[in-house]
Design a protein around this nucleic acid. Structure first.
Length: 583
RNA sequence: GCGCCUGUAGCUCAGUUGGAUAGAGCGUCAGACUCCGACUCUGAAGGCCGUGCGUUCGAAUCGCAUCAGGCGUACCA
């Protein structure tokens, strides 16, 4: 369905045209001065320039036409030429009912079908998920849901890091620690390798150890690089070993994502894209793009009008191995074949901006993009309260699992006290509060900016927090449980200001979804959800619903609760936050 | 050096084609529960929107310059 401002725009366009002015001027926005009106149009200012006419005169012409429209309860001129508009309660209520019955709950739908691949995981196997993986997961999941809510197809691919040097490092260390493991024997037989010698916890400790070792031990580093090349070139032993390492790591990675209610359609790794590398290289060669430089095979991606010198993309390192640009490009080839998407969104740290510039340019030059428009949706760093990258108390890297557990425990402390949720539901409620706390705390911030993770602030029961939103839903549920929901019908009128304000905010949610999609910005959905919750609190405070004796009023207010709950849950759903019944 | 991002209230942050008096949360201060969940609500104080110049009838928003912070700058991802 159309959004409310789209609807009003149509009216304004007609009015501008009727008066002989360009309909381009007819842009309605939500009022900057809610004390004066609900909507405004500033088109008369632009018209003044175009027609050499005083803005007030243009505004007056248009307003005169608008006053004949019974959907509008007000159309007046203010200031130098603002057109101030209020909509009628009848229009408002009609719109609210449409939102309520709309199967998309008022989320504006894409005009033509589109497929967007979202790449938002990027965890490395053999390395535990840590705080650095949080934002990609949370933002990516929200964007995926936003894409789907707007009627587009979204394909989520975790894009595991299982093809790079980190694999060689782990393999080299493994070989030194467990030389007797059958896998490393003289005659390699995958059928006869026995148990993987490490548990996942033990393995998670191997990578940091091996990484540190490679920095001071040149020989070890060379060995790691050598094993990486061997794996990439299809040496059966190291290919097998790579798959085994992934097999051990994956359940742990999945568990971490499950905790956060994040999921993927495909658990592909870089290794899955590697089969497209040959084709990629062939394409690059055929186009004469690939050449040797300092021992490596590279492609130039600089453009004449660049302000900086964009370095060439390395396709093959001087030791013949692939690098992340290679796998990213090969992955594009794979995605084109499998999905032929209109967009690929990379939800990856901002700091990789240059890398994606290079990859996208190379993909374009190679002609492998089809109709895909790739976008790097970068995000900022999550910092601690000291403003520096978030660390554990002893200065180490915070594991994702520990972060989740910390928030869960804090949530459980509060849920334990609750008299509203049943004993057997408490663990589930605590989990939902924890997820809401972490995700809302992250998503309320603009994606591109760094933000400070402050557990006390995020856990706070009041303010712009996930738990305040869940609390609002719980309060609505609590009221509705005390009445016969099936008897609630469409409202017959609007009776109070706080009620009208709430309905208007509900009606304007369509605008928020649309803008959030356009800017790929979940924070807009967060902000709108908070606005809804906040308006509800005032509405709830001002209108005593259950004791109201006027049946028409009571019904109207209950209807507002029912619609709000649905709309609020839509917001939460898009954010990847599960709603609660009671808490 | 070059480039990218950021700079808005004490703190953390929004700010939708350039538009009226720049908003919110927290914190502070003053109030509101015999009443549907007070995890609530009402009100107040608090800002040369980093700085300067320019474009415009009009700039937090656009341009140029400048200062400050973060990040990046070919064989890690």
């Amino acid at each position: 369905m159309k959004t409310l401002t789209e609807l009003l725009n149509k009216k304004l366009e007609a009015a501008f045209e009727k008066c002989g002015y360009s309909k381009e001027l007819a842009i309605v926005t939500v009022s900057d001065r809610p004390d004066l009106c609900q909507f405004q149009c500033n088109g008369a200012f632009g018209g003044a320039k175009l027609y050499h006419k005083a803005p007030r005169m243009i505004a007056e012409d248009v307003a005169a036409v608008l006053r004949e429209d019974e959907d509008l309860s007000k159309a007046e001129i203010a200031g130098a030429g603002f057109i101030n508009i209020d909509i009628s309660d009848k229009l408002l209520l009609g719109f609210i009912e449409q939102v309520y019955t709309d199967e998309k709950t008022g989320v504006p739908q894409a005009e033509k079908p589109e497929t967007i691949v979202l790449d938002y995981g990027g965890p490395n196997v053999a390395k535990p998920l840590h705080i650095g993986h949080l934002r990609a997961a949370v933002i990516g999941e929200a964007l995926k849901r936003l894409v789907r809510a707007t009627g587009r197809k979204a394909i989520a691919d975790v894009h595991l890091g299982d093809w790079g040097l980190q694999m060689g490092l782990v393999m080299a260390e493994l070989e030194e620690r467990h030389p007797d493991w059958e896998c490393f024997g003289d005659s390699f037989d995958p059928e006869n390798c026995g148990e993987f010698p490490l548990t996942v916890d033990e393995m998670n400790e191997v990578y940091p150890f091996a990484s540190a070792k490679s920095k001071e031990n040149e020989e070890f580093k060379e060995k790691a690089k050598d094993l990486t090349v061997k794996m990439q070139n299809g040496d059966p032993r190291y290919e097998y070993l790579g798959r085994e390492i992934t097999k051990i790591s994956l359940p742990d990675i999945k568990k971490n994502y499950e905790n956060l209610n994040v999921d993927f359609d495909y658990w592909y790794g870089e290794s899955d894209a590697s089969k497209y590398e040959a084709e990629l290289v062939e394409t690059l060669e055929k186009k004469g793009l690939l050449y040797e430089s300092e021992g490596a095979m590279v492609v130039d991606v600089a453009k004449d009008d660049d302000k900086i010198t964009v370095p060439p993309v390395i396709i093959k390192k001087s030791d013949g191995s692939s690098i992340y640009a290679t796998t990213d490009l090969a992955t594009i080839v794979q995605r084109e074949k499998d999905f032929a998407p209109q967009g690929i969104w990379y939800v990856v740290d901002q700091r990789q901006g240059l890398h994606f510039t290079q990859v996208f340019r190379c993909a374009e030059k190679a002609g492998i993009l089809g109709e895909t428009i790739p976008e790097h949706l970068g995000f900022g760093t999550m910092n601690g309260t000291d403003g520096k990258p978030y660390k554990t108390r002893d200065g180490g890297v915070m594991k994702l699992e520990l972060l989740y557990k910390t928030v869960y425990d804090a949530a459980m402390e509060r849920v334990k006290e609750s008299k509203f949720s049943a004993e057997e539901d408490k663990a589930d409620v605590a989990r939902k509060i924890a997820v809401a706390t972490i995700k809302f705390g992250d998503l309320i911030n603009h994606r591109a900016k760094d933000y400070i993770f402050d557990l006390d602030k995020f856990m706070a029961a009041d303010g712009k927090t996930g738990s305040f939103l869940l609390y609002t839903v719980a309060r609505i549920n609590s009221i509705l449980k005390k009445t016969d929901e099936s008897g609630i019908t469409a409202a017959s009128g609007v009776f109070t200001d706080s009620e009208r304000d709430l309905l208007l905010k509900i009606a304007l949610s369509g605008e928020a979804y649309a803008l959030a999609f356009k800017d790929r910005a979940p924070n807009i959905v967060c902000e709108n959800a908070y606005q809804l919750a906040s308006s509800f609190s005032k509405f709830y405070h001002d209108n005593h619903i259950l004791t109201e004796e006027d049946e028409q009023k009571k019904n109207a207010w209950l209807r507002a609760c029912v619609v709000l709950r649905k709309v609020l849950e839509k917001h939460l759903d898009i954010l990847g936050i599960e709603s609660v019944d009671l808490m």
